[in-house]
Design a protein around this nucleic acid. Structure first.
Lengths: 203, 203, 203, 203
DNA sequence: TATGAATGAGACTTCATTCAT
DNA sequence: AATGAATGAAGTCTCATTCAT
């Protein structure tokens, strides 16, 4: 294709405009024309870079969340063990959202209003995160740090569910407190959960 | 006497029709006319019982989730201690969704697409559930079962986030496995988390 | 018909309710159900006394405007000559509207929003008034008081148009001044007009 | 450059289409889609040029009645005195309506069915006409042609009321006679009225 | 006579997408 | 590559009227 879309300057310009518009006006009021205006291009130009409106949103998610997850992935390599990896996931999850309030609103509140099939594509992006989490749990079990009874899938669901709920609550409370302060207690609860799987079955 | 709306037979009929239509066609394709047809009434009749379309959805949530939460509340009274209460919350949360697949789809996937102000009303309904969860955690700390370091709000966020994520995953996997089987391991993880708050701080 | 409609108590009750509702809420917000409520009857009862909504309005106009015109007609008999008749028409037109502010709003502003065919029926009622006015002009010409060149139809159009415009202006100014004060100057202008027809033709 | 709405060709096209449709089908049957079809544009295009349906009607009135009044205003400058000005107002009022039968129906019958707030905007447009009329009367008094007792506001109400009623009658009689023939007698009656104010007060 | 719950047709407006320039 | 005017499908809600009780 003549246009090297993904790397063009305008591609990013439009995605950033979408984040701004959605954060400011909400998902349903984020018309293509508003995004175009914010990006400083004509409505029609959008369609030179994106297939349709949904494609803007998927790309937004892929780009932003992708970077988000990559950063965590990279950090994983530097961690000596599963416990540290878990600590870093929690730490970075909160840190990164904390650093990008606009994006937090868009990801936690607004984009969840999207139609079912957009959500399926979002899940594709999240799959990487899911695998990453499950890998950590698996290695924790292998290391003997986490309970042998810990189910990897359920553990991951608890991990993701907990982080997600905490970020959502923080966004809904209009970010009135520091999300990063939740890092330590959240990690400790999760560690307790992952270590204890066996205890209860002993009973 | 004017229509005793909330208790009339048709009120429930319409809400149940809404659940069916939303589950079958998705939130955005759930036109009022479709709901009316499913309920076997005229379009205009809907507006004798509901202020507008949003009101159908709020009422749906209030009725169904309200019953859901009430059932859990009642059960709480029969539990001797916080640990048992926690077990019952997990158990009943999964059991009730498991028993109402249609409703699960509607609550976990479709209604989250609703506009922001509808979501605010939904949150009002959920507040009762939130308080119930926090009360259990508080009593667990008083009983000495849960860690003294456990933060009630964070504990509740983990509890709700975990259950919610598990139900959502189950729904997205098209309910191919038995949700009730997750009850025991989920409870054990949560119990481990709530007991351990202190452990980590010892370190 | 079993029901002696026009003379029944409820017939008038409903018409008066319509006047009140239209005056208070405006023509377009005057739903049948609102009129029924104001009259203290059920919606369906309206249809025992009136063919349809338009029939309420026509009847309203016929009853109220009919009484209005009858009063003027009766007064005519007591007038010695055309000039005095003209004076009385002006006087009573203003006096009667002045005495019924609610009705003035309904007749001058609200009912003019009615559909074309309702207006045709209204014109039927007004025909009596039109004839009365033309008769006065004719007799004025016969008496020699009014110009022989005065066209009866045009004279009547001026007479009605002038009175109507003055009442409408008064209603639109929210009746902040006394309509009856316009009686004398309006009469004098009209008399001048009717006497002068000849002057201009002399030229 | 953004659409130069008011001066674009389509703006006028749509307004003219509205006149045609309203004249043919009546105010209440004049749906936006019908107007769009008559104008040969898509429904949505209407909304590029007008805020909403009411805006079409207000613009219609402003444009057409505005041109109408401007033409009279210009003619005023060429008149040597108030009597001649009065003659020209009557003459042009009838002439212009006579020349635009469609528009006459719309203005005299159909647009009066409009809701109250549209009527308020219409009155704004008419204010110019009202002032013009009152200025003529004032100058007539200064010249000594009209009675010193003539009230400007009442005189204007008679003038407008008379012209308006005559045009309305003509339209309702389906324009079976030549409106312009009324010009001379109407002027003479009005002149007689305006000159005579004093006579009656002598009495 | 009276009720009032139920009916169902009908229209304005938005906004993602296209395509001639 | 870029523009932006034009398109047109689609859905919520109101309210006059009916009819079983």
């Amino acid at each position: 294709m003549a246009l090297d879309k993904k790397n063009s300057q305008k591609y990013q310009l439009i995605i950033d405009a979408a984040v701004t518009v959605i954060a400011d006006h909400g998902y349903h009021a984020a018309q293509v024309s508003k995004i175009a205006k914010e990006a400083g291009v004509a409505d029609g130009t959008i369609y030179l870079y994106f297939k349709n409106k949904e494609d803007i949103l998927v790309s937004l998610f892929r780009t932003k969340m992708g970077g988000f997850i990559s950063a965590i992935e990279e950090r994983m390599a530097t961690c000596p063990n599963a416990e540290e990896k878990l600590r870093q996931i929690v730490h970075m999850h909160f840190n990164q959202f904390s650093a990008q309030p606009h994006l937090s609103v868009v990801m936690q509140l607004e984009m969840r209003q999207s139609a079912r099939d957009l959500r399926l594509q979002i899940n594709e992006v999240l799959k990487v995160y899911v695998h990453l989490m499950e890998d950590v749990i698996k290695s924790g079990k292998e290391e003997g740090t986490f309970s042998q009874n810990l189910d990897e899938k359920l553990g991951r669901q608890m991990l993701f569910g907990t982080l997600d709920e905490m970020v959502t609550n923080w966004v809904m409370k209009e970010r009135k407190y520091d999300l990063r302060d939740l890092s330590k207690p959240a990690f400790e609860m999760l560690l307790g959960a992952f270590k204890s799987g066996s205890l209860s079955t002993d009973a």
